[in-house]
């Protein structure tokens, strides 16, 4: 264990953090494990539970498993093990992650969640598509809103009327 861990260089703490950012996954698993165990151990179980193992047992096993794996993963990362980022057809891993787009898309999606109630699906859905396409770099103002509107209205009709899965119509459908 002496030679495998390189001591962090004091002049570049940020790059050490970046280098070992995967430790964040360990921290997350650790936190999740603590949460699951706390929840399981504070459970008030009635005396008349059915069967030899009650609702606590499996959460305790899962919680302990999470803690163990968190430690194992941390050891693996410190020894130089790295999770392989997933590749794909449209994926270019040579560039650093474009977190701005991810945040923008998350924002657009949250906006959809907020607006679907008051505006109804056809309008909120069109905004979602347009917003997402915009965040992804599409700037065709002549085409994007039109595609978004058609897609949203057609989807609404298919789900609401053909498949019998109700979606909120909102003021637009109310007005028709």
């Amino acid at each position: 264990m002496t030679a495998t861990i390189e001591p962090p260089k004091p002049e570049a703490p940020k790059s050490w953090l970046r280098e070992y950012s995967e430790l964040g996954v360990s921290v997350l698993l650790l936190a999740l494990g603590v949460l699951v165990l706390t929840d399981a151990l504070t459970m008030e179980v009635d005396i008349e539970q059915r069967g030899p193992i009650g609702p606590k047992t499996v959460p305790i096993v899962v919680g302990i498993g999470l803690l163990v794996i968190a430690v194992l993963l941390a050891i693996d990362v410190l020894r130089g093990g790295r999770g392989e980022a997933e590749g794909g057809e449209d994926i270019d891993l040579s560039e650093p992650a474009d977190m701005r787009t991810v945040l923008l898309l998350s924002g657009v999606f949250l906006g959809f969640a907020v607006l679907i109630g008051p505006l109804g699906f056809p309008i909120a859905g069109a905004l979602l598509f347009w917003g997402a396409a915009f965040a992804l770099g599409s700037r065709r103002l002549d085409r994007d809103p039109l595609i978004a509107a058609v897609l949203s209205v057609v989807t609404y009709a298919v789900f609401n009327n053909l498949l019998g899965v109700p979606l909120p119509g909102g003021p637009l459908i109310g007005a028709l």
Partner: peptide
């Protein structure tokens, strides 16, 4: 590509909302 991935997000939103009709599911 913007249309393709915007479309995936769009249909994901439809699917999650259709589960129970609750906006919180989208979050």
């Amino acid at each position: 590509r913007p249309y393709l991935y915007a479309g995936i997000l769009f249909f994901a939103g439809v699917g999650a909302y259709a589960v129970a009709g609750e906006a919180i599911d989208l979050v």
